[in-house]
Amino acid sequence: MTAAAILAAGQSPARLRLNRFLRHRAAVASGFLLAALVIAALLAPWIAEWRGTPPDAIDLLNRLAEPSWRHPLGTDELGRDLLIRILYGGRISLAVGLTAAVAAASIGTIIGVLAGYRGGVIDAILMRLTDFVIALPLLPLLIVLTALDLGKLPIPDGWLAGDPSGLWRIVVIIALVGWTTVARLVRGATLAVRQHEYMRAAMALGAGPMRTITRHVLPNVASPIVVATTLSIGQVILLESVLSFLGLGIQPPVASWGNMLTNAQELVWSAPRLAVVPGLAIFATVIACNFLGDGLQDALDPRALQDRR
């Protein structure tokens, strides 16, 4: 036991975790930034109504207007309010980031637990599958997947018609290729947990697989899953922005940070503002997710932290 651990012995584990997290100043700042961003994105429709500038309101007389009281960040090439579109784009980016990261982590957890817990042939097959997915050239593959004509697949028409902006399509595609990190993590952790005496005791007492997995395996692998998922939110937002920028992700007129930059590329000469602001939004969000993940790692995995001191 280290001196710090003895000093802290009177505190609850949750309190200790919080303290470790609070010591990571960048992570705390990032947490506040992300919280502010989520609130602003959630409030976007009300903010737009209050300002009287809906995100799709084209105003050709006010194209590329400089920042003013009416348009705090100015307007884009169609005279739409940049600030409001950034907020609406944030709704999309955060929604895609969160849902795709959580979906990918869920797939990864199921595959990882299955491989680690069952072992043998199932493990071998699942891990070869994981290697296969990791070996795929990610971006070219994502581009093909977004370009597919899903009408050629036996999918009910209603599903496709219900997703005109391509939001769910992006979420599904990213989740389908993004589960490998969590799968490997969870498999390793499951293998480690399986070695423990208490697992053998639980099994000897007649606990079935479902009970051992939910009571013993999952709580033990929860921390790395949380950290990996937080970090992957940032990666997903990056991927979504690249695809949307290339015209393959979120379809206009729905605003996303990526597709707002598509037109900005041609306007860098006349309106560099349009190229800077959405990019800054992506950059700030992704770096905040990365710092937050780093802080959570410190908080949830004290062994990594002890190495540092």
Binding site: S241, F245, V268, G279, F283
Partner: peptide, 25 residues
């Protein structure tokens, strides 16, 4: 460490855009 966090978080296409704005425009 801070620079590295910035480096892994910056969208590459935006970085390209900024470089074009700086060095070409």
């Amino acid at each position: 460490n801070l620079l590295c966090f910035a480096g892994i978080s910056v969208p590459p296409f935006w970085l390209a855009l900024l470089l074009i704005m700086l060095f070409s425009v």
